[in-house]
Nucleic acid binder design. Structure first.
Lengths: 135, 135
DNA sequence: ACCATTTGTTCTTATTTTAGTTACACTTAA
DNA sequence: TTAAGTGTAACTAAAATAAGAACAAATGGT
């Protein structure tokens, strides 16, 4: 199973998008997510590096850099998931064996397709779409 | 990132399918995968429970229960992945908050679509397809 | 100018997952 | 009967994840 950072990141992005006037502090967001403010700020840091939001030391709150309709879930996923590959592949299969020698490149193709299918679906859903589901 | 059990399981299934005459021991398979024989037998146990192969205590080797063309990668994935959900969701978001109250069901829908897209792609690829990539 | 508040960041800790390994009972086949 | 192999349980090690402590730096109100 994949970690919950994407879930938390989406939650944070929605909180910011839902309160464009007010300033939402990391502590307040942590209360909504039910976690520690540091966890929120850490994930905010990843979203900031990815250019999805802005925030400044000392200044309460954060703001999205784009309209929620222009932010896809794939944007958020890539921001909080450092790993390129979705599926792990076992290391150093035996090159003396016909199967072991070629299995990795075969799995690269196979797993790549599955990952692409998932990412394509994530890229078809925007932050706004998720917000509409909250109603 | 998802664990490497699917990769190892596919490797094992291919080794068995590729040697229908000979009996491939867990030790020999472990040599091809580059892991411990117990790891191979553990994953074989999951594949056996899922009805994808047969093997017996004391008797060397194993056999697939179906033609490789009739075994999808989704069959194998489900056999070695006990978790139902692909993406984790954070526990107990604040029900006092409009976002926290509804985020889980919204993410269920969202993540469910991504998972379905991935599984659909896995179900479109058979063990035989992967074997063809080894040539 | 001061000070309470908040962010950004580093470091530490606890928990869980994964993979590897040891050990051993039981089954099979020579 | 015995050597070899499977099926499992138990243990260990390593890695990933999440939570939290601590603090410097920045901000904004007074």
């Amino acid at each position: 199973m994949i970690n919950s950072r994407l879930a938390v990141a989406i939650h944070i992005m929605i909180l910011i998008a839902s309160n464009p006037r007010e300033t939402v502090s990391s502590e307040w967001m942590a209360g909504s997510v039910n976690t520690n403010p540091v966890v929120v700020r850490r994930i905010m840091g990843m979203l900031r590096k990815a250019g999805l939001l802005t925030s400044r030391a000392g200044k309460t709150g954060a703001a999205l850099t784009k309209d929620p309709a222009d932010i896809t879930l794939l944007d958020i996923f890539r921001a909080v998931e450092p790993k390129e590959e979705l599926f792990a592949i076992h290391e150093k299969p035996n090159p003396e064996c016909a199967v072991g020698k070629n299995i990795q490149s075969a799995l690269d193709v196979t797993f790549g397709r599955a990952q692409t299918a998932m990412e394509q679906e994530l890229s078809s859903q925007t932050l706004k779409d998720v917000m509409n589901h909250l109603l």
